[in-house]
């Protein structure tokens, strides 16, 4: 098990998968911040004053972190960020299911109400979280543009 977690190829594969997902997820949010703000609003989780700030900054964080993961630049910071974001996404989605709010996750496209895909999105998030956890504990240092100290 330890050899799998620290394996260079598996770690690189996880970096590419998670980096690509985060980069892809950032696109519509960057292009259409108003739609993403609406998706956040549907969660009913954060104060209205903060919704647009989150809608503007989070997509760029996803893009920057996705690129950093794949390229191996500021790598440890990027790994910490993807784990933080996955935990936040899982908590947010779980809370909508628990509270009975029928919300589309808004992860990859404009979200809204009543598409009932929160459970599927949550399962996907747990799968992605397994990969980001692997990146967190992996000691692989290969194929980085910036040397890890």
């Amino acid at each position: 098990m330890r050899s799998i977690i620290h394996n260079d190829f598996i770690t690189m594969l996880s970096r590419i998968i998670m980096g690509a997902i985060f980069i892809y997820a950032s696109f519509y949010k960057i292009l259409e911040p108003a739609l993403f703000a609406k998706s956040i609003w549907y969660y009913h989780l954060i104060p209205g004053l903060l919704i647009n700030i989150l809608a503007l900054v989070l997509p760029w964080l996803e893009l920057v972190v996705g690129l950093a993961l794949i390229g191996g630049v500021y790598y440890r910071g990027a790994v910490l960020w993807v784990n933080i974001m996955m935990v936040v996404f899982i908590i947010a989605l779980s809370s909508t299911i628990i509270r009975g709010i029928d919300v589309d996750c808004g992860c990859f496209k404009a979200g809204g109400s009543a598409t009932g895909s929160a459970t599927e999105s949550l399962l996907l998030d747990f799968g992605m979280f397994a990969l980001t956890l692997q990146l967190l504990v992996s000691k692989s240092k290969r194929w980085m543009l910036q040397r890890i100290t």
């Binding site: 503007l56 900054v57 997509p59 760029w60 964080l61 893009l63 920057v64 972190v65 950093a68 500021y74 790598y75 440890r76 910071g77 990027a78 910490l80 960020w81």
Partner: peptide, 15 residues
């Protein structure tokens, strides 16, 4: 921690 701060500052500037 320094890297996480750099990444969020870069993201804020880009946004």
């Amino acid at each position: 921690i320094k890297q996480t701060i750099i990444l969020i500052i870069l993201s804020i500037l880009l946004s």
